[in-house]
């Protein structure tokens, strides 16, 4: 599903992003990506989303070589990769419904389909009653649910969450993680979670890939966080 084959990305000024990284994330996997700040986790995500070009190596997404994509193809790639961020990235002047609908509008989905599917996803996320609220009226956990709803509404094969619980209290974090786990289990969506949340990682017993200094230093099934930060 996501495959990095000997990928290297060095930034200007010899800052190492990733160095000779090979990772294979299979269909329907749930993977935690851990490691200290600046270790290369963000570079990993940016490479998947084609915000960056690798210096060498190959990146395959859904079996397709995505190492080189034209600007025109990038939006198509992003449509089957859902993104969730630490800061939620919701549009403050749009309602919950509109925020989720945006992801469908960019694909020119008909209004009727949007009106049918958005409430379904909001129900799945347990925030059906918040459809007409603005993000500022919601608690952090609820905002993240909206963001997840937006990320999965187009049924992407891959869901990438960048520190999804970084701004949330432990209980809410746990709820959000369970939601992601649900999406992985029931939807068969491949989920990659970048996190610093030791408690969550240790408790979930999922595959853990640790990156440090631009290299994969550990890759263990049912792993633990393994750092003391």
């Amino acid at each position: 599903m996501i495959k990095f084959d000997d990928v290297t990305k060095i930034y200007d000024g010899n800052n190492v992003g990733l160095q000779n990284v090979s990772i294979d994330i299979g269909d329907g996997d749930f993977v935690f990506l851990v490691g200290p700040s600046g270790a290369g986790k963000t570079t990993f995500i940016k490479l998947i989303l084609k915000e960056l070009e690798p210096d060498s190596g190959h990146i395959y997404i859904n079996g397709r070589d995505c190492t080189r994509l034209s600007n025109r193809q990038i939006p198509m790639l992003r449509r089957y990769v859902g993104m969730v961020f630490q800061d939620f990235r919701l549009l403050p002047n749009k309602t919950v419904f509109e925020n989720v609908a945006l992801a469908m509008e960019v694909m020119h989905t008909t209004r009727r389909t949007i009106r049918r599917q958005v409430p379904q996803v909001l129900t799945m996320m347990g925030i059906a009653d918040k459809a007409d609220k603005f993000p500022s009226e919601l608690a952090g956990g609820e905002q993240q649910r909206v963001a997840i709803a937006r990320a999965i509404i187009n049924r992407p094969q891959i869901l990438i969450a960048d520190e999804p619980t970084g701004n949330l209290d432990p209980d809410t974090s746990w709820e959000i993680m369970n939601l992601l786990d649900d999406i992985n289990r029931h939807g068969g969506t491949t989920v990659v979670v970048v996190t610093h949340d030791k408690a969550v990682v240790d408790r979930m017993k999922k595959r853990v890939v640790a990156i440090d200094n631009g290299r994969v230093v550990r890759d263990s099934q049912e792993g633990e966080y393994g750092y003391d930060d």
Partner: peptide, 8 residues
């Protein structure tokens, strides 16, 4: 955000 959700 629009670009993240795949807007052309």
């Amino acid at each position: 955000i629009m670009k993240y959700v795949g807007a052309t």
